[in-house]
């Protein structure tokens, strides 16, 4: 049995940030264009469209992925999360604050991809070394910051996150 589609437009349904969206698109429609232009969520940026720069990073079924390297039709039915969703439900609050405090962004174009990469990384490596942070960013291109303050922001976010878990009452937080 095959879910046959052709050159003609076809219905694609994706859950994005918990909400279901159905749009009629061509099979070649890139996921990033579906998210940005068919649904209208613009936080996910396009930097290279060949999977190198990381600006278009989203989560597909709970894991980061490059949305420029997926056809929307091929992830039919998937759960997609973007910066808008992670930001709205507060999951990124610690990282966002750390980036603000450490000046971890300049033009802000790579930032959504960097935040999603960092969030996934920190959720699995709560106490990362500088080298591990740099390795985790190894495919997120930033042309503004020289990575110095991005690395610092992620390290600071890890430290502060650590405090929050070690001290659930939050007494040590000012």
């Amino acid at each position: 049995m095959s879910q046959a589609t052709s050159l003609r437009k076809t219905d694609v349904t994706l859950t994005i940030n918990g909400k279901s969206y159905t749009r009629q698109v061509e099979p070649r429609r890139l996921l990033v264009d579906f998210i940005r232009h068919d649904v209208g969520l613009k936080a996910t940026h396009i930097g290279c469209e060949h999977g190198v720069c990381g600006a278009c990073t989203v989560r597909i079924d709970g894991r980061t992925a490059r949305s420029c390297l997926h056809f929307a039709v091929a992830v039919q039915g998937a759960e997609i999360e973007t910066l808008e969703g992670l930001s709205a439900d507060g999951r990124l609050a610690g990282l966002q604050k750390a980036f603000h405090d450490a000046h971890g962004l300049q033009c802000g174009y790579c930032t959504p991809g960097v935040l999603l990469t960092a969030e996934e990384f920190l959720s699995e490596n709560p106490e990362p070394s500088e080298q591990e942070i740099r390795a985790a960013l190894s495919n997120n291109l930033c042309r503004c910051t020289g990575y110095v303050n991005i690395v610092k922001a992620i390290a600071n976010a890890a430290r502060d996150r650590d405090k929050t878990t070690a001290d659930p009452a939050g007494e040590s937080r000012k």
């Binding site: 095959s2 050159l7 076809t10 070649r28 469209e49």
Partner: peptide, 21 residues
């Protein structure tokens, strides 16, 4: 940098895939 058009098939079983191939 947008791909050229193509026909798309998404079989849900290996047999389906082999049949398409």
């Amino acid at each position: 940098m947008k791909p050229a058009p193509f026909e798309f098939r998404a079989p849900v079983s290996l047999d389906g895939v082999l049949e398409e191939m």
